[in-house]
Design a protein around this nucleic acid. Structure first.
Length: 521
RNA sequence: CGGGGUGUGGCGCAGUUGGCAGCGCACCGCGUUUGGGACGCGGGGGUCGUGGGUUCAAAUCCCUCCACCCCGACCA
């Protein structure tokens, strides 16, 4: 990228900032006595490639055109745009509520970590060394000790916990942090893998193993509950294999989702560290018997990657399809008119409907742009995944009706005409229906694409276009062979296993556990 | 780091005997439009990735460097 081009890009960005007026109606459709301009939204142009044509390109263009995110001038970094951030805020709100309900508190730890901290836990340093970004200079001179930009915070938090934890009375410590981390990545993709990403990382310390394990499972359940009930993502929870485990963990659990291209996406993780980090950072306390003891620690995280999961699970060839519970805008009202006379009548109804839905707690927006046609607006809001579109035209004013279009069923099938009377309950009912329909559709798709191959040859065939749920002897050799032959990896081993045992689909030896194999992001 | 490719207005591109740098979209203004991606007229915007060379003359020919994209080894 030439220097002049960068300048252009930067200055263009600056130029457009005042023009981007993204607002959700929770803040109000019109703010009286404020000097804000009429709502202006950058238009989503052109059509997307279809998912069948080119899934990767469909995803890239969709994320850009729906204005979830844009590329930053630094390779591998993304800018989360207001619409994408509004979605993320709804995600964080739903999770944060659950964290608080399970007894956690939020705090903030520094972004810069002394390099020496990473060397204290052997596996941790081996796992993260290749992805570290390191600060070597500050204030114009070279630093005595280089500082790593955090790729995750186990080390710095371990250091602080050793200062804070002295007695069994100090435990448990249940802290969560919302922030971003940086991992140097070779190949990046918006939301799914960027150098810097936003996330939440919980770090807890406990007096004994059972309590720490309970915490790990509890948070995995929190993620599952969030994914299923808020994001409508039918995730599968289980244990990671030794090779797929977090660097430094004794047990790693995850939730895994199936995208529409049938690749797996790890959507959140929850780890049990035993006393690994406690020993590395000397997190010790006096127990009730006055004996010095190492604490048991856990960590668990969910990142902006979940936005990618939502896009790739629910999106269609028209654009995003957002689950109503997380959608920044749940209902968009499109007024339709030919002249000023019609406009005033239509707008009166539109504003009244807006107020009713808003009062009923829905996130609503009136699209009163007058420089684009209504047909354009339909496509535009479909691109952005708004669950319900409500059209108000002159005919509706006469008949006391509105047109309702549900995003999960494009075209005529999803469109109906309903009375203005009782509209708030009609629409809120429809939002619930859409939420349920998205979960059901994704669950059916997932179940239809998980297979149970009877032989290794069949396994290889199945993994070309789906997942396998197979008996596995848990050896690294068999896992590596599958990866070598098919590029698929073990995703996780379900917590709840079927009865009995079988034979490993790879080597034929006795196997106690069934595992999901899939190609993963 | 290996293999392949591309650099020309914001985006996508055209530009061969070397001779005034163009088109579509987007953007700005005015008017007509608006129930599934409207149209007309008028505008603004580019040291052709960088540095050098050849030439009366370079986006175009030669060399240097740089950046980005795609494919392989690491990863929430």
């Amino acid at each position: 990228m030439a220097f002049t081009k960068i300048i252009h890009r930067i200055s263009n960005t600056e130029y457009r900032i005042p023009n981007i007026e993204y607002r959700i109606s929770n803040t109000a459709h019109r703010i009286p006595n404020s000097q804000h301009q009429p709502t202006r939204i950058k238009m989503a142009e052109e059509k997307l490639p279809t998912r069948a044509e080119n899934f990767a390109e469909w995803y890239n263009q969709l994320v850009l055109k729906s204005e979830l995110a844009d590329y930053a001038p630094v390779k591998g970094c993304m800018v989360v745009r207001p619409y994408g951030w509004a979605l993320w805020e709804n995600i964080t709100a739903a999770l944060d509520k659950r964290f608080k309900e399970t007894g956690h508190v939020n705090a903030a730890f520094p972004m810069l970590i002394p390099m020496s901290f990473f060397e204290k836990e052997k596996e941790h340093v081996e796992g993260f060394a290749p992805e570290l970004a390191v600060v070597t200079h500050g204030g114009g001179s070279e630093l005595e000790e280089p500082l790593a930009v955090r790729p995750t915070s186990e080390t710095i938090i371990g250091h602080m916990y050793s200062k804070w934890i002295k007695s069994w009375r100090d435990l448990p410590v249940l802290i969560n942090q919302w922030g971003s981390v940086l991992r140097w990545e070779m190949r990046t993709k918006l939301f799914l893998r960027t150098a810097e990403f936003y996330w939440q990382e919980g770090h807890t310390a406990h007096a004994d193993k059972d309590e720490a394990l309970e915490e790990m499972y509890r948070m995995l359940d929190v993620y599952t509950d969030f994914a299923v009930n808020e994001a409508a993502l039918p995730v599968l929870k289980g244990y990671k294999s030794e090779t797929e485990r977090f660097a430094g963990a004794q047990i790693t659990t995850s939730i895994e989702g199936m995208m529409q291209d049938k690749r797996a996406l790890q959507s959140a993780t929850s780890h049990y560290f035993g006393t690994n980090f406690a020993k590395a950072f000397e997190i010790q306390f006096l127990n009730k018997s006055n004996a010095l003891q190492f604490a048991e620690t856990t960590s668990w995280g969910l990142s902006t990657r979940i936005v990618g999961a939502i896009v790739m699970t629910h999106g269609d060839d028209q654009g995003l399809v957002l689950p109503p519970r997380l959608a920044p805008i749940q209902v968009v009202i499109v007024p339709i008119f030919k002249n000023d006379d019609e406009k005033s009548k239509v707008m009166e109804v539109a504003e009244r409907v807006f107020a009713e839905l808003k009062a009923a707690g829905m996130r609503v927006k009136v699209d009163d742009r007058d420089n684009v046609s209504s047909g354009f607006k339909f496509n535009d809001w479909e691109m952005r995944g708004v669950p319900v579109r409500l059209e108000v035209g002159p005919k509706d004013v006469e008949k006391g009706s509105v047109a309702l279009a549900r995003r999960d069923k494009p075209g005529r099938e999803g469109k109906s005409f309903v009375s203005q009377a009782g509209l708030a309950s009609t629409v809120s009912g429809l939002l619930v229906e859409i939420q349920d329909a998205l979960l059901k559709r994704a669950t059916d798709f997932r179940d239809a694409n998980i297979h149970d191959p009877k032989s290794y040859d069949e396994l290889k065939k199945v993994l070309e276009n789906g997942w396998a749920f197979s008996w596995w002897c848990e050896s690294k050799e068999c896992e590596a062979k599958v990866k070598e032959d098919t590029k698929a990896t073990t995703r996780n081993i379900p917590l709840d296993q079927p009865e009995g045992h079988g034979t490993c689909v790879v080597c034929g030896k006795p196997a106690k556990k069934k595992v999901y194999f899939a190609k993963a992001y």
